[in-house]
Amino acid sequence: MRIGVVTFPGSLDDRDAARAVRLAGAEAVSLWHGDADLHGVDAVVLPGGFSYGDYLRCGAIARFAPVMGPLVDAANGGLPVLGICNGFQVLCESHLLPGALVRNDHRTFVCRDQPLSIERTDTPWTSAYAPGERVVVPLKNGEGGFVADERTLDELEGEGRVVARYVGKNPNGSYRAIAGISNAAGNVVGLMPHPEHAIEPLFGPDPRSGTGGLDGLRFFTSVVEGLVSA
């Protein structure tokens, strides 16, 4: 079981994503932005950070990185892809996911332990969660407000493609409190909060939250288990 983690210049949570992959029981394969080859991995994580400094627009330059060519093709062919934070932004810029992520409505960067409800559990990244399950995962972003036109939002809701929603105070002004979405097939998931930061006891959110502060780990065990049984 090999899961690729892409490093763009300015990626920050790539090592964290690789740790999560390992803790979930898979091999983490480092993929380089300039290498147009997925090296036969079984799934890909686009990690958080500030790819290319987030200059121009978050994710707008990364989408043209050589690695994105084969990635977009493979994603359209059903390869499980998870974009976290900046990775979500890259997926939107690549048109693998609809909508866009804009500056937080309160104009400041926010880092907090964020309650979420997992709303779609038939994706390769969320199959280990129960529908409607409440989890707590760190959120940290400056431009995490999910926006889309009304029709797209209705479509997402109607097709059950809202993967996760913020519970309680909306932390960044996301429309309909959307924290994560998927493509129609469900194999491509974009998520603003950081499940890779809730995978080890005492290195994530308050250990009194959810499953001992480990609520993020199942995003990674989901895909590993799914691939094993496939």
Binding site: R15, F109, C111, R112, K140, H194, H197, I199
Partner: peptide, 10 residues
């Protein structure tokens, strides 16, 4: 402090 990332690097 909520404007600072305290989680990165894990």
């Amino acid at each position: 402090t909520d404007q600072y990332d305290r989680y990165v690097m894990g």
